[in-house]
Amino acid sequence: MVPAPTSPTSTSPTGASETGASETGARQVALVLRIGGALGAALVLAGLAVAVAQGGAGWLHGAGGDPLGGGAAMRLSDLGGGLRHGRAGAVILLGMLVLAATPAAGVAAAGCAWLRARRAWLAGVAVIVLLLLVLASVLGAAE
């Protein structure tokens, strides 16, 4: 058993403990999450506004119909075409893609910060998480 530490310890690349507020990479990750979250939410809001302006016709690939039904569902592969045709659904989808990519960007930011701080093990773990997210995308596309 390891006794509980009794006093705060300083930040150190090799030390056993790290103060949360000054944690390596925390500031960068927070910044990435703020920017990505705001950008994604803004795109979703813009898409919804465009849809309302289009009177709902832009919901379903430009064909109208029930905006909440299964027919209005979009795949990521529909994104490019939808944006080219100015579809509101595609703008919302882009916002959601930005939102989904934001946590991954946060992990990448943490990995870079750890690499700069010469914390190779942690940087390696971040790379594994990113590779798993890429794998998730590939497996989802293959469904």
Binding site: G47, G69, A73, S137, G140
Partner: peptide, 10 residues
């Protein structure tokens, strides 16, 4: 998103 189970408006 890849599978097409997301309705953008919803």
């Amino acid at each position: 998103l890849q599978r097409g189970d997301v309705v953008p408006a919803l």
